[in-house]
Computed example of a mutant assay.
Amino acid sequence: MDISNATALASAIVALVAPALVQAFKKYVPADYVGLVSLGTSVVLGVIAVGATGGFNHATWGVALAAVVGVAQAVYVLVNQAFVGKLSKDKLDLAV
């Protein structure tokens, strides 16, 4: 594969930052759309990371983008499970 080190590093960073952003802004998103916002955030940030590092110049940019989205969604699910739903949209709404 010809994914550069910069693309791999930027993709890894974005994959860990995207779930944190979704958690931070979850209370402003309607409960039915939190999953879609999480997916969209990871895709948009992944495209920015791949594009900023010149990753679109290689034929394997799709692999890097898929990796960003996959890892970001896995981290998002693990964070929610670690807090046993304490960060769920329903519990955040009840706390207000």
Rank of each mutant, 00 (worst) to 15 (best):
S4Q: 11
S4E: 08
A6D: 12
A6S: 15
A6P: 06
A8Y: 10
A8Q: 10
A8R: 13
L9G: 00
L9R: 02
A10S: 10
A10N: 01
A10Y: 00
S11L: 07
A12M: 12
A15G: 02
L16K: 02
V17Q: 01
A18M: 04
A18Q: 00
P19E: 03
P19M: 04
A20W: 11
A20P: 03
A20I: 15
A20E: 11
L21Y: 03
L21I: 14
V22F: 02
V22S: 01
Q23E: 12
A24E: 05
A24N: 04
A24L: 14
A24M: 10
F25T: 14
F25P: 03
F25V: 14
K26Y: 02
K26N: 07
K27P: 01
Y28R: 03
Y28C: 01
Y28Q: 06
A31T: 07
A31C: 09
A31D: 11
D32T: 11
Y33S: 15
Y33A: 14
G35Q: 10
L36S: 10
L36D: 07
V37M: 13
S38A: 15
S38L: 00
L39N: 02
G40T: 10
T41P: 02
S42P: 05
V43S: 04
V44P: 01
V44F: 13
V44W: 09
V44S: 10
L45R: 00
G46D: 04
G46I: 02
V47D: 05
V47Q: 04
V47S: 05
V47E: 03
I48V: 15
I48K: 08
A49K: 00
A49C: 09
A49E: 00
V50L: 07
G51Q: 12
G51F: 12
A52V: 10
T53E: 05
T53I: 08
T53D: 06
G54D: 08
G55M: 09
F56C: 06
N57Y: 06
T60N: 11
T60M: 07
T60D: 14
W61N: 01
G62R: 09
G62Q: 11
V63G: 06
V63M: 09
A64F: 03
A66N: 07
A67I: 06
A67L: 13
A67Q: 05
A67W: 04
V69Y: 01
V69R: 00
V69L: 09
G70K: 03
V71I: 15
V71W: 01
V71Y: 02
Q73N: 12
A74V: 13
Y76V: 04
V77A: 13
V77T: 08
V77M: 11
V79A: 09
Q81E: 14
Q81R: 13
Q81K: 10
F83G: 07
G85C: 06
L87R: 01
L87G: 01
S88D: 11
K89Q: 07
K89C: 01
K89L: 03
D90K: 13
D90C: 04
K91G: 02
K91W: 09
L92S: 05
L92W: 02
L92R: 05
L92F: 05
D93N: 11
D93L: 09
L94D: 14
L94V: 12
V96I: 06
